[in-house]
Write a protein that binds this DNA or RNA. Structure first.
Lengths: 150, 150
DNA sequence: TAAATTTAATAAGCATGCTTATTATATGTA
DNA sequence: TACATATAATAAGCATGCTTATTAAATTTA
């Protein structure tokens, strides 16, 4: 609408829409006290065992330091366990806990409902195209991140 | 690809793609030391005068506290000025500074180039559809944020 | 006008996210 | 084996972003 918006369309849309989604998730799941990031991390652990934090960081597309902080919080809440890696004393082996599975069982339907509501009025074809465009955007942006190491 | 991804498709895509864009912007503009948020805020001030922080927060879709922090950083860097509002002693009137305009003149072409590169291989029609889907997603998510107050 | 309520900005506390540095441990090479 | 290098995790510092509380000033109302 304004000239300004034109100038930062993609960044504005991605960031703003992402923020709206994050806020909606927070509202819906307030009583569980998990952020979208903690939820996403737990999901990755659900069907995996002995994952190191380094490996997990790759799975959730975050850096190791950030991943470590989120893991720490989930451990304090009792939703995952950090066991020593017998073959590498620097590393942990992460496991989701029973409490973690239980909270996921509550959160997953909420996340799915939110997902459904977010896509309301959007056809399957449109979703597919959206997905395909997102892939290309990610590829293009990923190349920019990788190629230009200072 | 995995079951996990299915479960948080939208949140994952929005957040991850947004992060890729933000990192690319940071890489390209490293020497100016402005974040995407600071850039977006300055853009909003470019063609406006006497904007309060409250008003500005609405323009950039952020809360007042966060907006205040970003304004503070831009003021320290000399890219905007905070003058007292003569009609309301609680409020400021914000103005972009000459230095702010100069840094925008450097940043805008970089942001535009990044935008072009991000959309590479995506047709004008696809962009339009993407935009339209984003609008609907935002509408749907916005309703969720507004309607369910506690 | 006086008291109650609202409002603009800020502060404090916490979570994510990035970068750089540190520590302890592994691995590779001489 | 000894030394150099690489690696997993953490710490510290800073920015965004949210929530709740505070302060001073504005507005409403009684």
């Amino acid at each position: 609408m304004t000239t300004q918006k034109q100038l930062q369309t993609l960044g504005y849309w991605l960031h703003h829409t992402s923020a709206l989604h994050k806020r909606a998730f927070a509202t819906e799941t307030k009583k569980f006290g998990l952020t979208t990031e903690q939820y996403g991390l737990l999901l990755q652990l659900r069907d995996r065992e002995k994952v190191s934090q380094k490996k997990l960081a790759g799975l959730i597309h975050k850096d190791q330091a950030t991943t470590g902080k989120i893991v720490e919080k989930l451990e304090v809440k009792g939703f995952l366990k950090r066991l020593p890696d017998p073959s590498d004393r620097r590393a942990f082996q992460l496991y989701i806990s029973d409490n973690g599975r239980e909270v996921l069982n509550e959160l997953i339907p909420i996340a799915e409902t939110l997902e459904t509501q977010a896509w309301e009025g959007i056809t399957a074809e449109e979703m597919q195209l959206f997905e395909s465009i997102m892939h290309r955007l990610q590829d293009n942006l990923y190349k920019k991140n990788v190629n230009e190491d200072e």
